[in-house]
Simulated assay, not measured.
Amino acid sequence: MSATIIDGKAFAQGKLDETYAEAQRLSEAGWAPCLVSISVGDVAAAELYVRNQRKYAEKAGVAFEVRNYPETISLEQLQGVLAGLNADPRVNGIIIQRPLPAHIPVKALQKAVHPLKDVEGMHPSSIGNIVYNELELGPCTAVAAVEILKSLPLQTEGLNVCVIGHSEIVGKPIAFLMMGLGATVTVCHHMTRQVSVHSRAADAVFVAVGKPGLVHGEMLKPGAALIDIGINRVEGRAVGDADFDSCAEVAGWITPVPGGVGPVTVSTLMNNAVRATRMQMDHYRATFAAAE
């Protein structure tokens, strides 16, 4: 294999160390970061994610509170819960765990979270900030993938980038983030003809579609960076959207699955929680400062 395998765990740990230091500074100022997790219905479905988030929160110096609600709760009741959390200065971030019951639309809950506490980066105003190149709290997976690419010895200005997948939470934000860095971006989706024509012309390829083995080595430009964001279960093991072995023979850098983008995503969530705490502290101080 010729590709350099990107160690997502080590990268995430470096980010967590920075986040912990900032969390300590905020705590000393009386603003200890606190993240609240909201689960509805089948708690077991999200248990692994919640446990992983709690572990990372401890490393980042972020208090982590889990709140579980019965499947019978209504959308209006949940919106009321979120309104209470929005108004509570002790709560600095809110994360909505998936899956949700069919009668609870996730977008309605994401819109109900105050933008200053939107650590998932999914409120419409958070997405809008990306479009205007004014990133504050961005979608964690998209930000994580772009941060990994930025760590490589590649000049982002003028870089040819291919994004395979155009979801609202990963593909589209990545495209806007990379354009904000000066890259030339092509976005491929299920109606794109000859995806390989676009991917072979790219210096960096992001793939996030949920199809194991979609990208093969012959679809890559030699020496290109491949950021595999997919996570799929095949024969009891986790695999990405890229055929790792064939891609590693062609790419210059590649993220493994697991151990690539995943750990960096959770560390980004914790960084967002601490960043949100700083933003709220500044907001409260500016709003309630005594007049001179």
Rank of each mutant, 00 (worst) to 15 (best):
121 G>F: 02
122 M>K: 13
123 H>V: 05
125 S>G: 00
125 S>K: 03
125 S>W: 00
127 I>S: 09
130 I>E: 02
132 Y>E: 09
133 N>L: 00
133 N>M: 00
134 E>F: 09
134 E>W: 05
136 E>K: 13
136 E>C: 00
138 G>Y: 07
138 G>K: 06
138 G>I: 06
139 P>E: 11
141 T>Y: 00
144 A>F: 08
145 A>S: 14
147 E>S: 14
149 L>C: 11
150 K>Y: 09
150 K>S: 13
153 P>A: 14
154 L>E: 08
157 E>F: 11
157 E>G: 10
158 G>S: 10
160 N>S: 15
162 C>L: 07
162 C>I: 06
162 C>H: 03
163 V>P: 03
167 S>N: 09
167 S>I: 03
167 S>Y: 05
170 V>Q: 02
175 A>P: 07
175 A>N: 04
176 F>Y: 14
176 F>H: 14
178 M>N: 07
180 G>E: 06
182 G>T: 10
185 V>W: 03
186 T>A: 08
189 H>A: 05
191 M>S: 14
191 M>A: 14
192 T>E: 10
193 R>T: 14
193 R>S: 08
196 S>L: 11
196 S>K: 11
196 S>W: 08
197 V>M: 13
197 V>G: 12
197 V>K: 14
198 H>E: 15
199 S>Q: 09
200 R>A: 15
200 R>E: 12
200 R>Q: 15
201 A>Y: 02
202 A>G: 10
204 A>S: 08
207 V>E: 05
207 V>D: 06
211 K>W: 01
213 G>D: 08
218 E>M: 12
219 M>Y: 05
221 K>C: 12
222 P>G: 11
226 L>D: 01
227 I>T: 06
228 D>K: 00
231 I>W: 09
234 V>H: 00
234 V>S: 06
235 E>H: 12
236 G>Q: 08
238 A>W: 01
238 A>H: 07
238 A>Q: 07
240 G>V: 09
240 G>P: 05
241 D>F: 01
241 D>L: 01
242 A>R: 01
243 D>H: 14
244 F>Y: 08
244 F>R: 03
246 S>A: 11
246 S>V: 07
247 C>K: 03
248 A>E: 02
251 A>P: 06
251 A>E: 06
252 G>M: 06
253 W>D: 04
255 T>K: 00
257 V>I: 15
257 V>C: 13
257 V>T: 14
258 P>C: 12
